[in-house]
Design a binder for these strands. Structure first.
Length: 259
DNA sequence: ATGACGGTGTGGCACCGA
């Protein structure tokens, strides 16, 4: 079973690239973030035509998330229950699998702009609410994947300039501690379960030839629960779509689970 | 370097992202 995450930074612009990528990478589940379109604009038909069901939580202009699945998804939840949020950032669902159903939570985590801002405070509140809900989700669904654009570097290896960017956004101790508190619930960063090339990133700024110079951040993750960990066969970042014309600034991360 | 690039919505720019 293959489960992937990709922040596509406007599905309107990137739909052809998503269709191409799925043709070359026929994953079972693809979590998308930053759709930047409302539900009524979502290309259900084009995705159905290539064999994917869609569970969509859209929003005009900003945010918006979706789960594309080969098999129908059940138990869909949008955003964090009990946490009032104007922004469409989370969609969760259960996917049937021969080895047992998998609960997938797909999130577009808050950016947070800069420490000390209202947006940063919202990021920290959002992360705390996610952690509390995640605890109940894990109790209900031991076989769980939390994935998406986390907008946090887990540690210095995940940044092209950890010293120059120390305590700036995506690099603060507060964000890293919040991510650790998610992991402390019994999740593992699937990417780090394996030897990986140094300077592996999932996002590069559009400016200053950042991709060409590999000045990036690893901020897109697939976290797996304890129960799923023995089934993890691989986790890889696919840099190829970043070379497309009009690319997203993020690339897909693909998690492979034993069937 | 309050920069750069790119998307959206609006409108000839502002806002946001990371």
């Amino acid at each position: 079973m293959k489960i992937a995450t990709w922040n596509i930074n406007s599905l309107t612009v990137r739909l052809p690239q998503v269709l191409d990528w799925l043709a070359a990478n026929p994953v079972d589940v693809l979590g998308l973030q930053e759709l930047k379109l409302s539900d009524d604009k979502f290309p259900l038909d084009a995705l159905q035509a290539i064999g994917y069901h869609s569970a969509v939580f859209g929003q005009k202009t900003y945010n918006g998330v979706a789960l594309l699945t080969r098999a129908p998804v059940t138990g869909v939840v949008k955003n964090i229950p009990g946490f009032a949020d104007e922004q469409s950032r989370v969609i969760a669902g259960t996917i049937a699998s021969p080895a047992g159903d998998v609960r997938v939570i797909n999130g577009y985590f808050v950016n947070g702009q800069a420490p000390g801002t209202d947006k940063f405070a919202y990021k920290m509140t959002w992360l705390a609410a996610l952690r509390d809900w995640l605890a109940t989700e894990l109790a209900r669904h031991p076989r769980l994947v939390l994935m998406g654009d986390f907008n946090i570097t887990a540690d210095d290896r995940d940044s092209w300039d950890p010293d120059g960017l120390r305590e700036t956004i995506h690099h603060t101790s507060a964000e890293r501690e919040a991510l650790q508190s998610l992991l402390a619930l019994g999740l593992h960063d699937a990417f780090r379960l394996f030897e990986q090339p140094e300077k592996s990133y999932s996002w590069w700024d559009y400016r200053e030839f950042a991709f060409r110079r590999n000045r990036g951040l690893r901020i897109d993750y697939t976290l797996v629960s304890e129960a799923l960990r023995p089934q993890v066969l691989a986790c890889a970042i696919d840099r190829l779509p970043r070379k497309n014309e009009r690319p997203s600034d993020h690339t897909p991360v693909v998690l492979t689970l034993a069937d």
